[in-house]
Design a protein around this nucleic acid. Structure first.
Lengths: 352, 352
DNA sequence: TTGAAAGCGCTAACAA
DNA sequence: TTGTTAGCGCTTTCAA
């Protein structure tokens, strides 16, 4: 890493106190309250004085202090939300973030975003610090499995909306994908292509969405009268590396599967790698849950059950806004549909 | 979308005012100042009173009001930063975000993140609202091409650090990738594989990094004594769709290129698609600038010049922290190296 | 070790 | 239309 330096930009002036309404009032020769009126665009100020105030404010680089304003205002709204994600850099999380932001932007709301990295302790810490910063709302893609602790925040008037996974131990608005139906649709797609030995590779059984997807797989198999072979079901597979191993072991079975349902995007990616390494990518069918970048450019292109994380984020933000305007509305659970996108890997027929 | 409702969770109790230090003090039977001492872990409070205060605070679900605390405190630090990104959902931006967050977390700093979507107007609005919210620092991946307007904020004591692209019209700390050297390395790699007709497909010439990468390409060609053919240079290509078109047109030339340097990740993805559609992916070499997910699983796997956006974020956050502790330190420009990752597509030799 | 009083920058309530 | 006064929840300062 190279570093180039130049003389300091900061001057003595940079140490002066930030200008306040008082300073603007003094410079404009009006009262504090008049400045407040101009800054907040209240009417009842003569054009004359308003212009003077504007000029003084510009001259001083004045920026209203929103935190002070909030402290005094009766509505007590900070126009700030906290967003708790699995990892801001993960494609699913960041798409949710984007959706939330789009709605927040229109409302003039600023969003604190943070990553929990599957650490329930971290979730609670973040809730506490955001609460201390007086956010109006929390949008949580939960890591913890127990959310009774949030009752305090709700009592304190913070709107809480869950995304991706439902809460436990508290009744709150929630936006989730139709995991069970989506997984069933993906599995059915494979059955309809003629497959009977269909493997399931999924995430930790402790994760509610992973469970739902497993149930969807079982539902579909039962509905079609296809047997679930215990040796073809691998759960507790969490990342791409583990998925490579898992799929490798499936392919090494005396009677390997002719198709694989991968219940999570990292697992799908691992499956792609393992199938390719084994030269089986055109022989063993693959359907993944959750879409991912470049899925359409792989060979074969990967068939997926796609979620719509951006829509989830938008909807969650909309619910927050409604909850803030009518805190007594009934709590609701919203299910965003998933979509099967056939691209090639899921349409491979079984060999005889 | 399905919606299920249940009876309201909010009760009359949810409308009560949030407890304050006064309330805790009253319940604990001590003065306001004693509560303040306990909350802030100042010493000089007897264990007896401290315990009483803790109990009262817990009983009331008390959360200290950080905004009120900040208003009164002499250091005037809010422990809040604003992060202005191209798009929070874009992989480069979100990796920078992650890097910033890792450092911020250790410092107990909360981060506002927002997307500018290449809109300079939006950049200025965000700076203004974050300034009003009294952030201590701004980390900006700039969209605007003129940043003199930020002088106000710097004078107001806000630390400003730029990432990805340098600022214009203001002297500020900055963290960038070695775009020129990286592009030269990628181009040289192709020359060394025997290519002479090497196309360049790049982003808007108005974007400084796009220009640098173009310069790197030119540098390398000149250094090797290889001619740059004007018809093989396509600039102002901004997204994947345009890149598909661009590469298609290159392949349709009477004398098509034997290799392509794609100067941006979306362009690389478009190039992959266009090459595959033309069945040319194993015949025309490809090197892309900026890594992307699944690049290693494509066929052929894609050779890239990888940036390290997470390291950029971490470094920017570190600079912010240094700037906040010594505002008069010299301004510095940091260049984070890129790395060539050969994976297959860049090692295809030209046909005779 | 504990507490009373003042005031951070702003808005609510009221007065002129 | 304009201004005055009090006080939001907290920390600073100073006194007991």
């Amino acid at each position: 890493m190279t570093t180039l330096s130049s003389p300091p930009a900061a001057t003595a002036e940079s140490l002066r106190a930030r200008p306040t309404m008082r300073d603007v009032a003094a410079l404009a020769g009006v009262s504090l309250k008049t400045v407040s009126r101009v800054v907040n665009r209240e009417d009842g100020v003569s054009e004359d004085l308003a212009a003077k105030v504007e000029r003084a404010a510009a001259q001083l680089d004045y920026r209203p202090n929103l935190t002070a304003s909030n402290l005094r205002r009766s509505d007590r709204k900070t126009a700030t939300w906290g967003l708790l994600l699995e990892d801001v850099a993960n494609p699913f999380s960041s798409a949710v973030h984007r959706g939330v932001e789009e709605v927040a932007r229109e409302l003039g709301v600023a969003v604190f975003a943070a990553s929990m990295d599957e650490d329930p302790e971290r979730e609670r810490e973040l809730v506490a610090t955001f609460s201390s910063r007086r956010v109006d709302a929390l949008i949580i893609a939960p890591t913890a499995t127990e959310h009774a602790y949030l009752a305090n925040e709700v009592r304190n008037g913070i709107a809480v909306v869950f995304v991706d996974r439902p809460p436990f131990g508290i009744d709150a608005d929630c936006v989730v994908t139709d995991n069970r139906a989506g997984a069933a649709a993906g599995t059915s797609h494979l059955v309809e292509c003629g497959h009977r030995r269909i493997a399931f590779v999924g995430d930790f059984a402790s994760i509610s969405t992973a469970n739902e997807r497993y149930q969807g797989y079982v539902d579909s198999m039962a509905a079609h009268g296809v047997q679930v072979h215990a040796e073809l079901v691998l759960r507790d597979v969490h990342d791409a590396t583990q998925a490579v191993e898992a799929v490798r072991s499936l392919l090494a079975l005396p009677e390997p599967p002719t198709a694989i349902f991968a219940a999570q995007n990292l697992i799908t990616m691992g499956a792609v790698e393992a199938l390719r390494d084994a030269g089986a990518q055109h022989r063993v069918a693959l359907v993944g849950f959750d879409d991912f970048a470049m899925a359409n450019l792989l060979d074969p292109a990967v068939t997926v059950v796609a979620q719509d994380p951006r829509a989830i984020g938008r909807l969650a933000a909309t619910l927050v806004n409604e909850r803030l305007s009518s805190s007594s509305a009934p709590v609701s659970v919203h299910v965003v549909p998933s979509v099967l996108i056939p691209r090639g890997s899921g349409e491979i027929a079984p060999r005889n």
